[in-house]
Design a protein around this nucleic acid. Structure first.
Length: 436
RNA sequence: GGCCCCCUCGUCUAUCGGCUAGGACAUCAGGUUCUCAUCCUGAGAAGAGGAGUUCGACUCUCCUGGGGGCUGCCA
């Protein structure tokens, strides 16, 4: 146990950006590594966007990624009275003053401004960026209450951090400059400021902040596309930190044990979807067979298929696990085993079936499969080996594969036949022959 | 414009002054195999540029260049 308290403080907008969730991941790992507390604060002051649905989306993302928090959710809107009470104190102490101001969008009214020091230097030691320093004159006074009386981010954020007892603020790089302001607010409010650490941004190939137009940018999109939460978590973690050796695929326990906030990188990292994809495949391949099997059944049922228990299903599980890149690929990959209405790749048909002699070959093979005893992958393979007389099995294997599955690639051909069973294998061979 | 930050293979990175600069993804070439995938082997691929400090610099300092952040009654 330690008395470290960190928080993830997103404003719910309906979507959770990967850069944002990475901040959550780093906070979570820091808390778990140090035995501190990980808190969730929902900065829901934008009533337009902070709908119950948006908040639910946020919670779903956190749960999906296994980011559990240690205290009840703190809603910023519930703390407005405290925010304003703090403003009164600042006003009374002369650290804040009222002023007539015109906003960017032309609104004129009286706002409350926070008074920053006018000379000297402002400085702090950032956990990831090191010593940061600025001349006080470069950080002007700033508004903390709008003309409609509502508290502004800087104020609310700091007061909430005080109220939640936050000791370390790990947040995005876009807040670095704000830190000079926030530190002054803490002191003016008579509170001990937390330590700050700023995380570099995740950028696109052009070095710009990674956004929607660069591809999937929100957690929900990765989830929909069939990525594993463990893979996304692991990949995002590696984007800016590594254990110091060559390990890359880490278990959650290893991450917690090895994570070191001091070793987080300062430089922006480009998001490489290819590596995430590789990692996703890695996680699927390394998953316990039971896990894969359960997920496969779930995906098949979702697709409207009715997988039946039995040796054929088990063989299919074994054959598919190593070939699956995304959960969502499963239904298409397995379609030929659950419906006769599977897609047919015309190119494969052209290449493997529309050739002289293939029709006769398929009819001959259909008869042989009909007589094959037992009807197993091993027996099928032995049979074709026999036919090929030591030459390659290609001339037999390729046409059979296209005839029974409609595709030129896929799981082992003989396993495929065994899974389909004698009846369907023979039917499809004859059907393909008839179509030629 | 001003202020702040950053700069090792295409990408993520290792290197705490000694480097024949290592790993992973991606790429390419082999091997295994009925295809695909897996798996195995191998190859190419980097210190932004220039000064300085030092016996020695990717590592330290400075300048230039390039990139990014901030500069709101957004967060």
């Amino acid at each position: 146990m330690s008395d470290i308290r960190v928080r993830f403080a997103p404003s719910p907008t309906g979507k959770v950006h990967i850069g944002n969730i990475r901040a959550a991941i780093y906070n979570w790992l820091y808390a778990r590594h140090t035995g501190g507390k990980f808190l969730l604060r929902v900065e829901d002051t934008d009533l337009e966007r902070s709908t119950p649905e948006a908040i639910q989306t946020l919670m779903d993302c956190m749960e999906w990624l296994g980011l559990d928090y240690d205290e009840p959710v703190f809603y910023q809107t519930k703390n407005v009275a405290r925010h304003l009470a703090c403003v009164e104190k600042l006003l009374a102490d002369g650290r804040a003053y009222k002023m007539e101001k015109t906003s960017r969008d032309g609104k004129t009214g009286e706002v409350v401004m926070f008074r920053m020091p006018k000379d000297g230097t402002l400085a702090f030691d950032d956990i990831v960026k090191g010593h940061m320093e600025k001349k006080a004159e470069d950080v002007p006074d700033f508004a903390i209450v709008r003309s409609d009386g509502s508290p502004i981010f800087h104020l609310a954020n700091v007061v909430d951090d005080i109220d939640q007892g936050v000791t370390h603020v790990i947040r995005g790089d876009d807040h670095v400059e704000n830190t000079f302001k926030h530190l002054e607010l803490f002191r003016a409010l008579g509170a001990t400021p937390p330590r700050y650490g700023h995380l570099s941004m995740i950028v696109n190939a052009q070095g710009k902040p990674y956004s929607k137009r660069d591809g999937a940018a929100f957690v929900g999109e990765f989830r929909e596309q069939g990525y594993l939460p463990e893979a996304l978590f692991n990949y995002l973690l590696l984007l800016g930190w590594n254990p110091g050796d060559d390990r890359e695929v880490l278990t959650r326990d290893e991450m917690v044990a090895l994570f070191d906030i001091e070793k987080v990188h300062v430089t922006a990292a480009k998001f490489d979807i290819k590596k995430l994809q590789w990692m996703n495949g890695e996680y699927i391949r390394r998953a316990p067979r039971e896990t894969y099997r359960a997920k496969m059944l779930e995906k098949l049922r979702e697709a409207g298929y009715a997988p039946e228990e039995g040796p054929a299903l088990e063989m299919l599980v074994d054959q598919m696990q190593v070939r699956t890149k995304f959960w969502n690929d499963i239904p298409a990959m397995a379609a030929p085993f659950f419906t006769d209405d599977y897609p047919v790749d015309e190119k494969a048909v052209e290449k493997r079936l529309r050739k002289p002699g293939v029709k006769e070959l398929l009819l001959d093979l259909a008869s042989r499969f009909e007589a094959l005893e037992p009807f197993t992958a091993a027996a099928g393979e032995a049979m074709v080996k026999e036919l090929s007389q030591g030459g390659g099995m290609g001339p037999w294997v390729h046409p059979i594969r296209v005839a029974v599955s409609g595709r030129g690639e896929g799981i082992g051909l003989f396993e495929m036949c065994e899974i389909l069973g004698r009846k369907r294998t023979v039917e499809r061979l004859r059907r393909a022959a008839a179509a030629l």
